[in-house]
């Protein structure tokens, strides 16, 4: 591939991740949900991974416009495994791609890394579940500068176990 094309692809990739706005979190580059119902599949999770998935479901359901359930499947696939030494604890992606026109993702994939989570508390797993499932509702990361009371699970460097009011509002706006 020619360098110009590579640069264009990178620019397009960057374009799906708008910069953070003051007072709010950024949008997730993995896209918005395509509707207000998340039918989520737990794929042979460990007990800690399962607790994280349950926490994420319950936190998503705090948003009036979102219904998250383990009944049925097709919107979110949740896995945990030893993915080795990575820079991350968990990740959320849209493997089939974010729709260019709508910015929506049809099927999200969530992966918890049991290797990098080794030694972390049960409460940290709940925070991770809230965080990653938050990405499947279109939430990006929060920073200390826009979460001054340190109560959003969308932070990376601390481990709150719940969405705050800004997160809930953003979920309702995204679906």
């Amino acid at each position: 591939m020619r360098p110009g094309v590579v640069a264009l692809v990178v620019v397009l990739l960057t374009a799906v991740a708008p910069p953070a706005q003051a007072g709010h979190g950024s949008k997730a580059s993995s896209g918005d949900p395509d509707n207000g119902i998340h039918r989520m599949d737990r794929h042979s999770l460990t007990s800690l991974g399962d607790s994280a998935a349950v926490r994420g479901r319950d936190q998503l359901n705090r948003a009036d416009d979102m219904t998250a359930t383990f009944e049925g499947s097709g919107d979110v696939d949740i896995y945990d495994a030893d993915y080795g030494n990575t820079s991350w604890f968990g990740r959320t992606s849209c493997p089939d791609g974010v729709n260019w026109l709508t910015g929506n993702c049809d099927v999200f994939k969530v992966q918890f890394n049991t290797r990098t989570m080794t030694g972390r508390s049960a409460g940290d797993w709940l925070s991770l579940g809230c965080h990653e499932l938050g990405h499947t509702a279109g939430l990006g990361h929060r920073a200390a500068s826009n979460d001054v009371d340190d109560n959003s699970c969308m932070r990376s460097e601390i481990w709150p176990r719940s969405f705050d009011g800004h997160d809930i509002d953003a979920i309702n706006a995204a679906v």
Binding site: V6, V9, V16, S29, S30, S87, F89, R91, T92, S156
Partner: peptide, 16 residues
Amino acid sequence: PDHPERSAEAKERHSF
């Protein structure tokens, strides 16, 4: 492929 087409969100171990 020789270029990435997708972007994953991740909770990272370090936030400098």
